[in-house]
């Protein structure tokens, strides 16, 4: 058994979730690889109280983009809109090309591919998804910022050491 296998079996603090990289959140405040999709929220360029909910499904690569009020994104009739492109760019910054491609099951070698090249690999079709699921996940995400700080010692956090990340 090598050291890595031993750690998976016997370490109480092995890092299970890979670290993500910091990125600018202004345009795309929320990106995640979850529910079998690359999904997220893109702020509208023209209306500060409107956001677009965009997603690409793993495997069949169908995509969807609509406002938080479920109005389809007008630009979709010309192919992938700029919201989905922005989602992809930011996902690549956050997770790295390889991890995004693996999650979406994009075939072939993706090392060194630019975001437009990665998008061309998608061969995607539009399939509208209700925006509510992703949007409510985003609201849940935001709600963490409203949870008050605490001075209660949290011994449980010793299982979650901060670890040297990519800066």
């Amino acid at each position: 058994m090598n050291a890595e296998d031993t750690a998976w079996l016997q370490s109480s603090t092995i890092q299970v979730i890979k670290p993500i990289r910091p990125r600018k959140l202004a345009k795309v405040p929320f990106v995640e690889l979850a529910d079998g999709r690359l999904q997220g929220v893109v702020s509208s360029g023209s209306d500060i109280s409107r956001v677009y909910v965009s997603s690409i499904t793993a495997g069949d690569h169908t995509y969807s983009c609509s406002t938080n009020n479920n109005r389809p994104c007008g630009a979709l009739s010309w192919g992938l809109c700029k919201h989905i492109q922005a989602l992809m760019s930011e996902a690549v910054v956050q997770y790295g090309t390889e991890r995004v491609a693996r999650y979406l099951r994009i075939e072939g070698d993706v090392e060194g591919l630019s975001v437009p090249e990665l998008i061309r690999r998608l061969n995607a079709q539009h399939q509208s998804l209700p925006s509510s699921t992703v949007f409510s996940r985003f609201l849940h995400h935001l709600s963490y910022l409203e949870v008050p700080a605490t001075t209660t010692p949290l011994p449980e956090m010793h299982w979650f050491p901060s670890t040297l990340a990519v800066r």
């Binding site: 670290p19 993500i20 910091p22 990125r23 959140l25 956050q94 995400h141 935001l142 963490y144 910022l145 949870v147 700080a149 605490t150 001075t151 209660t152 010692p153 949290l154 956090m157 990340a165 800066r167």
Partner: peptide, 22 residues
Amino acid sequence: VRTSVAVAKVDTIIGPAMWDLL
């Protein structure tokens, strides 16, 4: 002795930016 402060955050608040929460 030890003394602790803890905050809720999201995954995109990482690195030195976390101090801002404190």
